[in-house]
Design a protein around this nucleic acid. Structure first.
Lengths: 332, 332
DNA sequence: TTGTAGGCGTTATCAA
DNA sequence: TTGATAACGCCTACAA
């Protein structure tokens, strides 16, 4: 590797002069500057970013941590992050939970956005500080240096269930995601509460379990089909599982939405083509906003109060009937 | 930031002893080692990766460069890269073209995989060397230090067109992507050659142009609909444009595939649901393979000969008729 | 078993 | 306008 020293030797000046020239300092003569630039070109000099970070300690690079490369909507989040990062003149680096610890360091990056359940809370708390702010998505944390951006699962899920109730649905099933996640808990709590307020509840055999994958939705549907009584509608904790269910129902000859209705959560790309009623999460905006907060914290103009953002119900007709008929759901 | 020095002071030993302890060197007594570890924990010591890379120069971190956060199938490539990277005990960093130059340096990463048209050939040639190998996807390069992994567009496109010919199609249109890209050129050349071998060619008004986006496909279809004579089939240079076309045709009341057939390229997720006949590219495998070659080059066991991989035609019935009828295509 | 000293590539300070 | 020197945090001979 060519270093500043070798350029200096070739240009017959001192290393500091080369450094000054390269950094556009005014105290270098035009003649010398030109000579140095020519030599850098010629010798293919590549500045060593590690040593640069050593002295200065500042990096102007943000880190985004995520691993779940299956979930397409994450791309929208990256897009939002990427766009705002560029806007403010920062660089973006992406890595997965496995290796993020190493890169969450002021000498490499100056802050991070975490969207990866596999990152331990403890690691975030350990790394976060006013000098190294961290934004965590979908993960409530109370810490000076860590700021949470949360989705208001509860409100939007309530809106969905209310809407379904008013369309005439009474017999609900819930397809849960990973039980331990806060998202899942909130989505379930909202649903249960709205139903309770209408004197309804979910039958135990209609409380289904998946792990957010399409396959688990397929399996849950197959199991549901064994039960004596089918629900009128299955509310899935995410789209992927809803897709799996729909496939399983269709395979069994059930018509959707006439025989059984399905809703999702996330509004992934195929949801629109399928006409799936689901929850549309403003992912691009989430990423954008997260980055905005992060940079503000970095430059000392942000606070560490949690922020909540809203989603909306995307009503579509492919998987939910407009009007079920309040008492006799099967007479379609 | 807590450094090794401060730990040393607190533990009342020298910095080198701390370094030795932390690196598991045998020349540290159990007592001292324990004291040091406890203090690191207590003081929340975070080793500075930049300085580590300074001396050794080796990083065991790979870089993947891509920006096109819209194209979903890139996720599959990352998945493949990520999986193999983990397998070999390396770390993975992802960045976009805009900032990659900075991170393509031995002090940060030890090699990169480039899948981003916006990265200039020149930059790759400048950075690549036996000590810093670069794998470029879909970009032919001849250079010691850079290895190309290319898709055999020509063969698979020939197979598609032959198959369509044998199904009875005669009047072909081609919806081109960005003209300057090699991918597009090869796809067109294969199509033209197969048609020529059967004494056919594409009418000038049936040579359509897009830029790989869904919207451009939609527009191209609208323009095509103005022409006096419609083709029997439009072969699109990618899926996204095919999706746009299909939407436009349907809006105009055309039935697909009865009135007009469509094929794509990429086999993106929605292609299956739509029944779109398209080219399925083994993206996960490409990523996996690219990483394998990269690491082999890094450890000095690879070569820099280009590699070609094969795609396959995914025949589906939603957008192409099984048998058009060799002479009278419209009598469906 | 521990400590000292030098170096990695760059930047900043200060002197020439 | 330039150059010498020290410093950033860590590692590694080598000396004690």
């Amino acid at each position: 590797m060519i270093t500043i020293k070798e350029i200096a030797k070739a240009a017959d000046v001192s290393p500091s002069t080369v450094s000054n020239a390269l950094n556009g300092k005014p105290n270098v003569s035009e003649k010398v500057r030109e000579r140095i630039f020519a030599l850098c070109e010629e010798m293919n000099y590549q500045p060593n970013p590690a040593s640069k970070g050593l002295k200065s300690g500042k990096s102007k690079t943000l880190l985004f941590v995520f691993s779940d490369f299956d979930r397409q909507f994450y791309l929208q989040i990256i897009k939002g992050i990427n766009q705002y990062t560029n806007l403010r003149g920062y660089d973006l680096l992406v890595c997965s939970a496995k290796t993020c610890s190493k890169f969450m360091h002021p000498s490499i990056t100056c802050g991070s956005i975490i969207l990866d359940r596999r990152v331990q809370d403890q690691l975030i708390l350990q790394k976060a500080s006013k000098d190294y702010p961290i934004i965590s998505l979908d993960r409530p944390l109370k810490h000076q240096g860590a700021k949470s951006i949360l989705l208001d699962n509860y409100s939007v899920m309530s809106e969905l269930i209310e809407g379904l109730y008013h369309r005439g649905y009474r017999k609900f099933a819930f397809l849960a995601g990973v039980e331990s996640t806060l998202d899942n808990q909130e989505r379930y709590a909202a649903m249960a509460e709205v139903l309770r307020s209408h004197g309804l509840k979910i039958a135990p055999e209609h409380h289904l379990h998946g792990d957010y994958t399409e396959q688990s939705g397929y399996q849950a549907a197959k199991i549901l089909l064994l039960s004596k009584q089918l629900p009128e509608i299955v509310v899935s904790a995410n789209d992927d599982m809803a897709f799996g269910m729909i496939e399983a129902f269709r395979e069994s000859g059930l018509r959707i939405p006439q025989d059984i209705a399905v809703t999702g959560f996330d509004d992934e790309k195929p949801a629109e083509a399928l006409g799936l009623t689901t929850i549309s999460v403003p992912n691009f905006e989430r990423g954008y906003l997260a980055t905005q907060h992060l940079i503000n914290c970095i430059i000392g103009e942000g606070d560490f109060e949690p922020v909540t953002i809203n989603a909306r119900v995307a009503w579509r007709n492919g998987t939910v009937l407009k009007q079920l008929g309040s008492r006799s759901p099967k007479d379609q």
